[in-house]
């Protein structure tokens, strides 16, 4: 009888340990950011804006887009761009998939930011408004790239979940373009003038960038009247958009020393040692190459 009691005591002891451990189990990792703790600082939320800028465009995209035309020849390998230029592309070409994927990745970053920015405590209203306008500028830019490449594409102005992503239809290009125009009109009023951007903010979207993108979007639609309206507005309102002027030395326009010069409307940052892109040593202007 004594033995049985003793065994029950042991069993009860282990059961107690088992259940006390269960209750204390920590379900959130302490060493990582999660949905619960990420959005608690304005600095963290700005990191998401940086990611959106990074996903919006890249040095690779600039060179590779040129390689679709006869401006640039990529001499090292049989790239997707060369296959397109030679007319040999079919729907399995990796670039088609990648452009689509990268566009929607950037859109997701924008939408996640827009959905969560209000959770960030102690963020001044004007600062928040400016960042939201930047994100909306980036979103308009990305949609513009997508409709130019694909025409009608799945369209949403907020984050979509997995189930929605399986059923979301394509929206007409014209409808998405009218959204882009409306967004750019709005953010143009909110974004700062170029003259008010200094230091690390120089690479951020400004009023002028939104106005110039608006003009380009109308240009691609052959809406000459609107192109003239927006470009005139940008040129003739330095007090609103900031002062732009032609840089005197054309060749110098592209050198590192003249970053953010007076002719630049939107300067997408690039540093080869910090963020290496395409190896440009294999690129040639087409007239030197035999394609």
């Amino acid at each position: 009888m004594k033995h049985i009691n003793f065994r029950w005591n042991i069993a009860a002891f282990f059961l107690a340990i088992l259940f006390s451990n269960c209750n204390k189990m920590d379900l959130q990792p302490v060493g990582e950011y999660t949905d619960d703790n990420y959005w608690l600082s304005a600095a963290n939320s700005d990191l998401m804006v940086n990611m959106a800028y990074s996903q919006m465009y890249s040095a690779d995209k600039m060179w590779n887009d040129e390689a679709l035309s006869d401006n640039v020849f990529e001499g090292r390998s049989n790239t997707s761009q060369r296959i397109i230029r030679n007319g040999n592309a079919d729907p399995s070409l990796a670039l088609f998939r990648d452009e689509w994927k990268q566009g929607y990745e950037a859109l997701k970053t924008c939408h996640i930011y827009l959905a969560n920015v209000d959770r960030v405590p102690n963020m001044s209203a004007t600062f928040k408004q400016q960042r939201i306008a930047e994100i909306r500028f980036i979103r308009a830019y990305v949609y513009f790239r997508l409709v130019n490449f694909f025409g009608a594409v799945p369209f949403s102005t907020s984050d979509i979940n997995l189930a929605e992503s399986r059923t979301i239809p394509r929206t007409d290009k014209a409808q998405i373009l009218s959204f882009i125009h409306q967004e750019l009109d709005e953010v143009m009023q909110i974004l700062p003038s170029k003259n008010n951007l200094s230091g690390l903010d120089k690479a951020r979207a400004s009023k002028g960038a939104a106005c110039a993108l608006q003009a380009r979007a109308y240009l691609y639609e052959s809406n000459w009247q609107e192109v003239a309206t927006y470009t005139d507005s940008l040129i003739n309102n330095p007090e609103k958009f900031g002062s732009y002027s032609l840089f005197p030395d054309y060749a110098g326009l592209f050198t590192v020393a003249n970053e953010y010069n007076s002719e630049v409307i939107f300067d997408y940052g690039y540093l080869i040692d910090k963020k290496p892109g395409l190896n440009t040593t294999t690129l040639l202007p087409c007239r030197w190459a035999r394609a």
Partner: peptide, 12 residues
């Protein structure tokens, strides 16, 4: 993640 001048900013 994003470059401004000579500075490389982090992203998330």
């Amino acid at each position: 993640t994003y470059i401004v001048g000579d500075s490389a900013l982090a992203g998330a």
